[in-house]
């Protein structure tokens, strides 16, 4: 068959598909599968019969666009985020309880060890944190400060923005660093534990700052520390899947693990954002009795604990 005849015969089909694929589609989209199959047939014929390159290129472009339109259509998954939060995320954390335990031990272990050291030998604090910074923390938590835990007079909204930008980004970096064998995730965890341990112990030694500090950190700490540990767990899992891929190739193991851990990364980020909200608008609120803050803080810890032990248990 001559090419011109072939073009004449199928021009209507190609024009129809072009209309369907345009930015503002015209025509019945339900027809696309049938038209696409017809298009694939003309493309194969054109190639096999050696029609001109410009024609096959054109049909190829058309087929690629139709292929994407047809197979790229996302399955509608309403409320996937809600499903993640009510079920997938806590279940995933329970599945990974071993790594969670290890990560928690590293964070709390580093914090506790250094904290005890500083408690008994305060001069050690200067090995990790500069004297200026220690003095700054002392100022921030002394009773005279207008706003607890802040230097100067940062407004609530500004601190909220700062905590989001800083803390959630740290969580993301901790996860991404996991791909390098999990080591950066571990380091980030140990470093944050150590830093917290030094500061907590340093401020606890002084009765002026002790209560202010603990009543400040207890509420948002529940969400922030859990968020950081979970980011590290997701990162470590990614690193482990590279180190010991089991019966998969390294690439497939990475692909699978990343897909599996994504709810945890998102969940950890949401926890950290929640922590930022509490840290900015609640923890620093002046004129609240420490007893109230301790009660709310204790409630927050219980809530986190209950969420990760109970949520999503009854779902298949």
């Amino acid at each position: 068959m001559k090419q011109s005849l072939f073009e004449q015969q199928h021009a209507a089909l190609w024009a129809k598909i072009e209309m369907l694929l345009a930015d503002k589609p015209q025509g019945d989209r339900k027809e696309l599968p049938r038209l696409y199959r017809a298009l694939c047939q003309t493309l194969s014929l054109a190639r096999q019969r050696g029609y001109s390159p410009s024609l096959t290129e054109h049909l190829h472009t058309l087929a690629l666009a139709a292929h994407r339109q047809l197979y790229g259509a996302a399955i509608e998954r309403p409320a996937v985020l809600r499903h993640w939060l009510t079920s997938r995320f806590p279940r995933l954390v329970r599945e990974e309880w071993r790594l969670f335990l290890i990560a928690s031990l590293i964070f709390w272990g580093a914090g506790l060890a250094v904290g005890l050291l500083v408690w008994f030998y305060p001069e050690w604090a200067y090995s990790w944190v500069s004297p200026q910074e220690l003095a700054k923390y002392k100022r921030m938590y002394s009773q005279a400060a207008a706003r607890l835990g802040r230097e100067g007079s940062g407004s609530d909204l500004m601190m909220f923005g700062f905590y989001i930008w800083n803390n959630v980004s740290i969580g993301f970096r901790t996860f991404a660093g996991g791909i390098l064998g999990g080591v950066p995730a571990l380091l980030s965890l140990a470093f944050n534990g150590l830093h917290g341990g030094v500061i907590a112990s340093w401020l606890s030694r002084d009765p002026v700052t002790r209560e202010a500090f603990w009543s400040f950190v207890i509420t948002h700490g529940a969400f922030e520390i859990t968020g950081l540990i979970l980011s590290a767990v997701a990162g470590m899992r990614l690193g482990l899947s590279l180190i010991s891929p089991g019966r998969y190739s390294r690439h497939h193991s990475l692909l699978r693990t990343a897909q599996r851990m994504l709810p945890m990364v998102v969940g950890a980020a949401l926890l950290t954002a929640l922590a930022a909200f509490f840290e900015a608008f609640w923890s620093a609120m002046p004129g609240l009795a420490p007893a109230i803050k301790y009660a709310v803080g204790g409630g927050a810890w219980l809530l986190v604990l209950a969420y990760f032990t109970l949520a999503g248990r009854h779902e298949a």
Partner: peptide, 16 residues
């Protein structure tokens, strides 16, 4: 101050 807070939020959202 509030402007800088919003700024940081925008920074976060746009960066990631």
């Amino acid at each position: 101050q509030a402007g800088r807070g919003i700024m940081l939020l925008v920074l976060f959202v746009s960066y990631w």
